[in-house]
């Protein structure tokens, strides 16, 4: 890597230009964007502004794991027995409460740091639920009433571990990954990134003059590579979520709230399209408590924390479409089962 003084000037100029454009934006108020288009932009932007900080935090934690901690630092504390190991991994969210968006870059970093693919999937599914912020906010919203909180915790743990176990039976787990990410992981001592892993230009792990770059350079390099993968997915995923919000009437789902089965299915569908952060989704769904049965609420809180339209876009950076379809179907089925259990038994 080479220090380029003009790089700083270029960076500052671009940032200043962006601020200047923002400053003069009121002049464009008369463009007369139709309401639906304007709302689509507002909704997409709200998801991006809400999620981007968690993505940055996830990338920073991933950087710490890959660059600043010794290789295998986390895995050395985990049991070797696969089931116990995944059980422990599903609780790692207690130490990395970064919300589901940030968990994607973190899970990518874990895989580079020594996690297997099924272990990474287990972490990705469990961490949004089994973390202190989610548990506290869910308790604030529902307490222990109707078994919603306990269902969410238990279902989150069980679903993540069952799916992790299922994929551990896969004969070739690496085939669950996209080719680009798989190639990135295969490079020895390579922080995960996008820019060069499928060809062209390497990520700068080799200095032009042959020496290894320092940790700061590698951290910046990792940020650049990860944002190249995650940010387009975040923008596109948020836009899709916004389009669905604007064009699918929510009243269609709300009409189904009082039926034990339909309330569960409707809330899973709502969770998929609303794409709300797992740390606060309990407050959101609390407002539907009078409309939907508790099982529907529990299914929303279980499914939505793991899978939604925005998360699929983010996860697609790492996993194949086939894998995501399988994960989504399994999570939906098991979340529905948990919800029905609450509705009929609890």
């Amino acid at each position: 890597m080479r220090r380029v003084p003009t790089g700083l000037i270029l960076g500052v100029v671009l940032v200043a230009a962006a601020f200047a454009l923002r400053a003069v934006s009121p002049a464009f108020a008369g463009w007369g964007v139709p309401d639906r288009v304007q709302d689509t932009i507002t909704l997409a932007l709200s998801v991006i502004i809400e999620s981007a900080p968690f993505v940055f935090l996830g990338i920073l934690l991933s950087t710490v794991v890959q660059v600043w901690l010794p290789h295998g630092f986390i895995t050395r504390f985990l049991p070797r027995q696969p089931v116990l190991r995944r059980a422990c991994i599903s609780l790692l969210g207690m130490f990395f409460p970064v919300c589901e968006c940030g968990n994607v870059p973190l899970a990518r970093g874990f895989m580079v740091g020594g996690f297997t693919v099924p272990e990474s999937i287990t972490f990705l599914l469990a961490a949004p639920i089994l973390n202190p912020i989610t548990i506290i906010t869910t308790h604030q919203a529902f307490g222990w009433g109707d078994g919603i909180l306990i269902t969410r915790i238990v279902a989150g743990f069980v679903i993540a571990n069952v799916i992790g176990w299922l994929f551990s039976r896969h004969p070739d787990p690496d085939s669950l990954l996209t080719r680009t990410f798989s190639a990135s992981c295969a490079r020895p001592d390579a922080p995960v990134s996008n820019g060069g892993h499928d060809g062209g230009l390497h990520e700068g792990h080799t200095h032009p003059h042959g020496s290894r770059p320092g940790r700061i350079e590698r951290s910046v390099d990792l940020f650049t590579g990860e944002t190249a993968v995650i940010m387009p997915a975040l923008f596109i995923g948020s836009l899709i979520a916004a389009l669905v919000q604007v064009f699918v009437p929510r009243s269609v789902l709300l009409a189904l709230g009082s039926n034990p089965v339909w309330s569960v299915l409707a809330m899973i569908a709502l969770a998929f399209i609303v794409a709300v952060c797992s740390n606060v989704d309990a407050f959101f769904v609390l407002s539907f408590g009078s409309t939907f049965m508790p099982g529907g609420i529990a299914a929303f809180l279980t499914f939505g924390a793991m899978i939604d339209v925005k998360m699929l876009a983010l996860m697609r950076t790492t996993f194949t479409t086939r894998t995501l379809v399988q994960i989504t179907a399994l999570v939906a089925l098991m979340s529905a089962a948990a919800g029905l259990l609450v509705n009929y038994v609890a």
């Binding site: 890597m1 380029v4 032009p208 700061i216 940020f223």
Partner: peptide, 21 residues
Amino acid sequence: FVVASFVFRTPSAGESEPSGR
């Protein structure tokens, strides 16, 4: 980090060996 990305620049296209598929 965005500004730092301009400062700690990785090899440009002309400086790196193309190796992609």
